[in-house]
Design a protein around this nucleic acid. Structure first.
Length: 526
RNA sequence: GUCCCGGUAGCUCAGCAGGAUAGAGCAUCGGAUUCCUAAUCCGAAGGUCGUGGGUUCGAAUCCCGCCCGGGACACCA
């Protein structure tokens, strides 16, 4: 809608016009402060300019009213325009809010180490990534969801050792747990399973590598099922281990581009040259590549696949990595600006008001699956999506458990279910009302209609800014408006019945599509 | 010490590519149900937008300093 209006205005003025939402509803649907900008150029008063502009714009048929006020120009859309759009939307639900942005995007997220189940911190990135992907696709982009599996290195070995130690314990041996070992119920379960599968020889012969390898696969399966529980699936999984086959190739390119030097028997990346605070070791003295090496190869292969844009959702504790990875990309001859990092800030947990320390090692972390079981996947998703990804999020597990009707996802679903219920009571279907002209509506109805039709610009804005809370905020506000309307205006049996039913269907449409883009299915009955 | 994120109502947070009187939810208080789902609605109260400067017609929003909170600063992944 906004685009269409903007286009029409710009056709007249031949100038970029900023459209905003008026502070107050009575001012109209859109407003522009353009007169203030022009005032400077033309050296005339904004009021005068606004006056003239308004007269000019008023010719457009999409407007019912164009009014200058204190230098602003306020626009009110015509009923015909809104009705036409509403009818189209109702008939073309799959198209509603779509666009043709056409970027090829590689979206990497979660990428949690396969050394344990997903915890609540991982869930945040997972939920954000999924919603971003859905919205991006809706807007006409091609998006590949990818998971980078850190299946190489020390932590996988530690996983094997931890399983081994736990198995020893099960067999009644006295063991001591070093701090860095993984603990937790899942390790015990793995140990039990391993003993069943491989027998006690696995302990007697101390077959750590075998345990590591097997345990890693088990954990990957567990992670996949954790994700499936909240409706998230990946298009592609990339194994760090397999990437190392290309290390020689990548190293050669880096060398060729003068990115590498040797010092103290190690190979260093000149990441300083491109904005990092110091150079980084990529190969240790003993010849083993560092973690960064894996990430360099990974991004090399990403860029080789030729996407327009690469988005990584990382935990905020990785922010130090941005500079060095971007430097590496530059050295490899690619454009680091194509890589965009979204940082998902820490999730801190309270339990009964007390800080709840998350630590995988100690095993007292809150599992994503636990929380899903407590409050449901929808509530969890909505909570994460309601907050900007780069703000610290603190919530009390107990509060979340208690949350029921005060949970916004219920509130929104209730609005959707309510509309469905009214339709049923009225005994009418979409076909019965979709062509009824929405004319002569009262103020509340017009406002509601306008709000419901705003979804497309909300999701576009949300995707552009990578701020998904704009969608949740919108849905909350739309639901509130619906509830308010519902309480004030009777639908069934009035002369407005068909008009109102059509209006309500538009609201339901927006709620349903909006929720779906967040990975939540709207409820038809509650 | 350096870097990142945050500081807006009692609490959790929106608003920030500058714009009209700073918003919502929860909590508090007061109302609404013979009527389409009260899982709802209506109303009240609640604010030095951390702080000090600067930029300008205009700053919660942009710039600089400072204060407070959280996090990151590996040849771990």
């Amino acid at each position: 809608m906004r685009k269409r209006v903007q286009q029409e205005l710009q056709n007249i003025l031949q100038k970029e016009i900023v459209l905003e939402k008026p502070k107050e509803k009575k001012f109209g649907h859109f407003a522009t402060p353009i007169a203030f900008t022009l005032a400077k150029e033309l050296r005339r008063s904004p009021m005068q300019i606004a006056d003239e502009l308004a007269k000019n714009f008023a010719k457009l048929s999409i407007f019912e009213k164009v009014e200058p006020l204190k230098g602003y120009v306020n626009f009110k859309l015509s009923e015909d325009f809104l009705d036409e759009y509403a009818t189209w939307a109702l008939r073309n639900e799959p198209e509603f809010g779509t666009d043709k942005q056409g970027e090829k995007i590689l979206l990497e997220f979660v990428s949690a180490n396969p050394t344990g189940p997903l915890h609540i911190g991982h869930a945040r990135g997972a939920v954000i990534g999924e919603a971003l992907s859905r919205i991006g696709k809706h807007l006409g982009n091609e998006i590949v969801k990818e998971y980078y599996i850190n299946d190489a290195g020390n932590q996988i070995y530690l996983l094997g050792l931890s399983i081994y130690l736990s198995a020893c314990e099960i067999l009644g041996k006295e063991v001591e747990w070093p701090d860095e070992y993984y603990r937790g119920e899942y390790i015990k379960e793995l140990a039990r399973k391993a003993l069943e599968l491989f027998g006690e020889e696995i302990v007697e012969h101390k077959q750590i590598d075998r345990l590591s390898d097997w345990g890693k696969d088990e954990m990957m399966e567990l992670i996949r099922s954790n994700l499936a529980e909240v409706g998230i699936e990946f298009d592609s999984f990339v194994s760090e281990k397999e990437l190392y086959q290309k290390w020689d190739e990548v190293l050669a390119i880096l060398r060729e581009h003068g990115a590498i030097y040797e010092k103290d028997g190690k190979l260093w990346l000149r990441s300083c040259e491109y904005g990092d605070e110091k150079d980084r070791v990529v190969v240790r003295e003993d010849g083993r590549p560092t973690y960064l090496a894996g990430d360099i190869i990974y991004h090399y292969t990403k860029f080789q696949r030729g996407f327009d844009r690469y988005i990584n959702i990382w935990g905020a504790d990785h922010h130090g990595y941005i500079a060095r990875v971007k430097a590496a990309i530059k050295f490899l001859g690619y454009d680091p600006d194509k890589l965009e990092i979204i940082l998902a800030q820490m999730v801190s947990l309270l339990k009964g008001g007390e800080p709840y320390k998350m630590s995988k090692r100690a095993g007292n972390f809150i599992l994503m699956s636990e929380v899903v079981e407590e409050i449901g996947a929808d509530a969890l998703k909505f909570m994460f999506l309601s907050k900007k990804s780069d703000t610290h999020l603190e919530f009390d597990v107990d509060m979340l458990k208690k949350e029921d009707s005060s949970n916004p996802v219920y509130y929104i679903n209730y609005a959707h279910a309510r509309i469905n219920s009214v339709m049923q009571k009225a005994g009418k279907s979409l076909e019965d009302v979709v062509d009824v002209p929405l004319k002569g509506l009262n103020e509340e109805a017009k406002d509601l209609l306008f709000s419901a039709l705003l979804l497309p610009e909300v999701i576009e804005d949300a995707f552009f800014k990578r701020e998904l809370q704009r969608v949740t905020d919108y849905l909350k506000a739309l639901a509130a408006q619906l509830h308010s309307f519902y309480n004030k205006h009777k639908v069934i049996g009035t002369e407005n019945e068909d008009k109102y039913l059509k209006l309500l269907l538009v609201v339901a449409l927006s709620i349903r599509v909006g929720l779906r883009l967040l990975g939540i299915e709207a409820k038809y009955r509650m």
